[in-house]
Design a protein around this nucleic acid. Sequence first.
DNA 1: TTGAAAGCGCTAACAG
DNA 2: CTGTTAGCGCTTTCAA
Lengths: 336, 336
Amino acid sequence: MNDAREENPTIYDVARLAGLSIATVSRVINSPEQVNEVTKNKVLQIIDELGYIPKAEARARAIRGTRRIGVLTPFFTSPAFVERLRGIAFVIGTTNFELIVYTVDSKVRLQDYLVSLALTRNLDGLIIMSLPFNETDAKRLIAHQVKTVIIEYEQEFFSSVKIDNAGGGKIAARYLTGKGHRRLGFIGEINPPEYAIHPALDRLNGFKEGLAEHHILLPDEHICSSPIDQESSLKSACELLQQEQRPTAIFAAADIQAMAVIKVAKEMGLNIPQDLAVLGFDGLEVADYMGLTTINQSLDETGRIAADLLLAQISGARQSVQHVSVPLNIIERETV
Amino acid sequence: MNDAREENPTIYDVARLAGLSIATVSRVINSPEQVNEVTKNKVLQIIDELGYIPKAEARARAIRGTRRIGVLTPFFTSPAFVERLRGIAFVIGTTNFELIVYTVDSKVRLQDYLVSLALTRNLDGLIIMSLPFNETDAKRLIAHQVKTVIIEYEQEFFSSVKIDNAGGGKIAARYLTGKGHRRLGFIGEINPPEYAIHPALDRLNGFKEGLAEHHILLPDEHICSSPIDQESSLKSACELLQQEQRPTAIFAAADIQAMAVIKVAKEMGLNIPQDLAVLGFDGLEVADYMGLTTINQSLDETGRIAADLLLAQISGARQSVQHVSVPLNIIERETV
DNA sequence: TTGAAAGCGCTAACAG
DNA sequence: CTGTTAGCGCTTTCAA
């Protein structure tokens, strides 16, 4: 009577019942965006009715690449990482690649990932974000043909996207001195966790240099080294502002820390920017809501560029290593 | 030089190197008794040298070795999604599971993912965040044995983590009226994109109810429906505040929108909370920096709970469906 | 947007 | 014993 088999249905059964080719059925499972909505629904309905289950083994055989892109990132300790990740996700979302997120919170974990991601050739591509690694790691990645793009770090064998941190510091110095400030302060994560890179130090150095151009010295007691987390930032901001000779303007190496400074300043009854000017660095989205003047590093775009670079490399469209430097720009709002 | 591929060797490679047909190699593996001892040893040796692993097995192993958990989430339009994701990533990071992020930005995409994630069964578990789906989708997921936990939505077959949105609205009403406010306003994404859920509406309804308890009516012109993005929020906040009879207190269904209101209010020269009280909803981390009073929904923890629930289910430790309701609490800061 | 057709890596029937 | 060859169920060009 009904020849709908007790047997497990195959893609051929689905196709026949739908009056379509197996190619189309395969597409609704693997690249649904390529299939007409009506067709898709018809196929889907039959799939559900039949209880069709693709044979994993057959798939494994037929599948070429792994269609997987990994992102190695510090754990979301700072919104900056997230905004870059968003840029990456945005681009990857337009493709058929899966986005696998590997978060790092220690040196050991970073090292473990670097090894296993290379060895278990399971990734078509890898984006390494704000994390340092040595030549051995790089060579291993290359030996195992993991296409890699790095963000906020540079390494001769891989394409990279970065910014000029020292340059950013100089911009800060010029901007703040241009506003007439002579007693400056700095807060930033100068001593980041061992597994992370330390752009804040470069920003600080650039800042000092920029100040030197104006013959201004940044006294040590106005240089505040603080981890990026909320508690530390708040505490550090307090120390910085409660000094006898408090700075009239502060350059924070991260927007989130600038926000901490502002919070503390307000609690102290200081008016911003009259009593204290605050300049951030990042260009976070929330900075706008706070009216924070900041040096924008286009985080979102950085992520997008990295993803584009990687995709181009995977597709073979571009093989050569290239280093992209994303320009900084200052966004003037109300805190300076 | 050496053409020994970086690629995984296939049965063809083994056969070629052994000077035999693939059939013989296949026999060595599947029916060794049919193969001549000498031949067999030759083949075995080459298999070992090459490190040959049948592909299906390789895949099975890869999948068993690296277990995978997927998160289906709206694209990072709101920081709230990100904070929940962070909670998830935190938990998953302590395990051997990979975290795969699938971002949704349209109804079609959501549907596509729901289908392919179920059919390809490449996931050990799935967390569906703030996204609605129907019973057909649910049954398919179940039929294909994808362990699933949902956040901010409820569905009888799956465990879920959610909050009491209407209850939150009531809390807001009581808190604000308790502070003496009688002319209230509301802003929220009452009409979210079609692929998303709409907790803001529940919050609004709860808010209205809570006000009704105090015989206060929320006039339509003080109910502001606005998408969550920055531009819309700012614009809507303007409209809300520029009314003749402006509210003395505003309940925003999302912290990010509360921040928009504050920004606009300040630009208008209003003092907060004297001229205008603002109460947010979410408990974002940045809310603290802004001194925003808000109804905290413990986003980070929500993510952690969902991940724990899923892990327990995957490990078989807990099979029964359970619905967790995360309690709300109000965090008093400086905007009310 | 779709279909035809050529694989993918492997097994097994059939010859020899 | 071993090789030839025809699939297995699925994916992926390539053209239409």
